[in-house]
Write a protein that binds this DNA or RNA. Structure first.
Lengths: 115, 115
DNA sequence: TAACTATATAACAATATTCTTATATGATCA
DNA sequence: TGATCATATAAGAATATTGTTATATAGTTA
């Protein structure tokens, strides 16, 4: 029994670790209720495309998000099947909306390229 | 307003970062409903005393825990005044109890030294 | 006061993380 | 098919984190 509980804490810690980065936490909040593609993240965070890909990979590696390819684009969204989904939602609820970042993209016309 | 929300995510990420470590996350669960002193953590985690102190410092630096000196001993507990306390409780609720680790200490008689 | 116990801090080596540049993969379009 | 666009991966430099040993601080006790 002791082994079981240890195992669970050992599984939880890496989840918090990936969330412990401003960029990745903002990504999670952005896709809380919608889907975003890689190019949007690149625009929003003003970071290089490889850097964005690597952040997304870390979120995906722990199962927090899932990807879906649509033509040339890859769209990311919360993984509702993750065992951490419930906890994740309760955390995201307590963070401020990041919608303004998407709205700004629309103003710039940058979001239209792929969506 | 955009600035404000960014600021809040920027404040939340370091919280998850300190929680993103197995030792520190277990520490938080251990003191969820009680107080522990440094020497107990040293026993429980079988780590060096400086290493334990450094982990506790990180938790304290972000305000998640508070310390209270009682004679030679320093006792750590959750900081109920932290703005993250509510979120923290809801996270800890979803993690398995680590009481067994304290019970084991009592069996070994190791807990009696300071408590 | 001196010796002892508990804890904190400093310095450093080992390791991990993050970003960058270069390149590979995969889809679309002319 | 070749060119182009979107994304992923690889490799390496810069930086951050973690644990260790040595030492400092603070309280207790003889």
């Amino acid at each position: 029994m002791a082994t079981k509980t240890e195992f669970q804490i050992e599984k939880a810690a890496p989840i918090f670790k990936v969330l412990g980065d401003k960029t990745r936490l903002t990504m999670m909040k952005l896709i809380e209720n919608q889907t975003c593609c890689v190019c949007e993240f690149v625009e929003i965070f003003q970071m290089s495309q490889p850097s964005i890909s690597q952040h997304l990979r870390k979120l995906r590696d722990v199962g927090l998000i899932k990807e879906e390819r649509k033509g040339q684009w890859v769209f990311y969204s919360l993984n509702h099947e993750s065992e951490w989904f419930g906890l994740m939602k309760s955390i995201l609820e307590q963070l401020p909306s990041q919608e303004d970042k998407l709205i700004e993209l629309e103003k710039n016309g940058t979001r239209i390229t792929c969506c």
